[in-house]
C-alpha cells in the first residue's frame, strides 16, 4: 500500500490533523498547545520550528489553540500554554509544560526520533 497523504505533513494545525496523523503515520508527532496573546508561545515557536525542520520529515508538528479546543487540552492534562506533548500514534511519550530551556525540547525530540527509527 502506498503511503497515505497525511504522512507527508510536517507542520499541521488542529485536532483533525492530529487524529489523521495518529491513524496514518508511524513517525512521532509533536503537539504544541498554544493560546492567543501568549508571549511564551511566541518565544518558543521559532525554536520548535527549527527542531522539527532539522529532523527532515521524521517528526510531525501539530499546533493546537487550547482556547479553540479546550476539551482536547483538558483531556491531555494541558493547563498552561505553551505545552508540548509528544506522541507515537495515540501514546503520550513526553509532556513539557510551560517554557523550558531549548535543550529540553531538542533532546526530547531527538530521543523519540532515534527510538522510532
Amino acid at each position: 500500500m502506498s503511503e497515505s497523504l497525511s504522512s507527508h505533513i510536517i507542520f499541521g494545525e488542529g485536532r483533525n490533523t492530529l487524529q489523521q496523523l495518529q491513524q496514518e503515520s508511524e513517525n512521532p508527532i509533536l503537539v504544541k498547545f498554544v493560546a492567543p496573546h501568549c508571549p511564551s508561545c511566541e518565544t518558543l515557536a521559532p525554536v520548535l520550528q527549527q527542531i522539527v525542520t532539522d529532523q527532515a520529515g521524521k517528526v510531525h508538528m501539530v499546533t493546537i489553540d487550547m482556547t479553540e479546543d479546550p476539551e482536547l487540552a483538558m483531556a491531555l492534562g494541558v493547563r498552561s500554554a505553551p505545552t508540548v506533548v509528544l506522541f507515537k500514534k495515540t501514546t503520550v511519550l513526553e509532556r513539557i509544560a510551560g517554557l523550558k530551556p531549548k535543550i529540553l525540547y531538542f533532546e526530547a525530540v531527538q530521543k523519540i526520533v532515534s527510538r522510532s527509527q
Binding site: 496573546h37 508571549p39 511564551s40 518565544t43 525554536v47 517554557l99 523550558k100 530551556p101 531549548k102
Partner: peptide, 16 residues
C-alpha cells in the same frame, strides 16, 4: 533571554 527570569520583552509582555 529565553525562559530564565520571565519572557523576552519583560513584564510588559504580560501587560495588556
Amino acid at each position: 533571554g529565553f525562559e530564565a527570569g520571565g519572557v523576552p520583552g519583560g513584564q510588559l509582555m504580560t501587560t495588556t
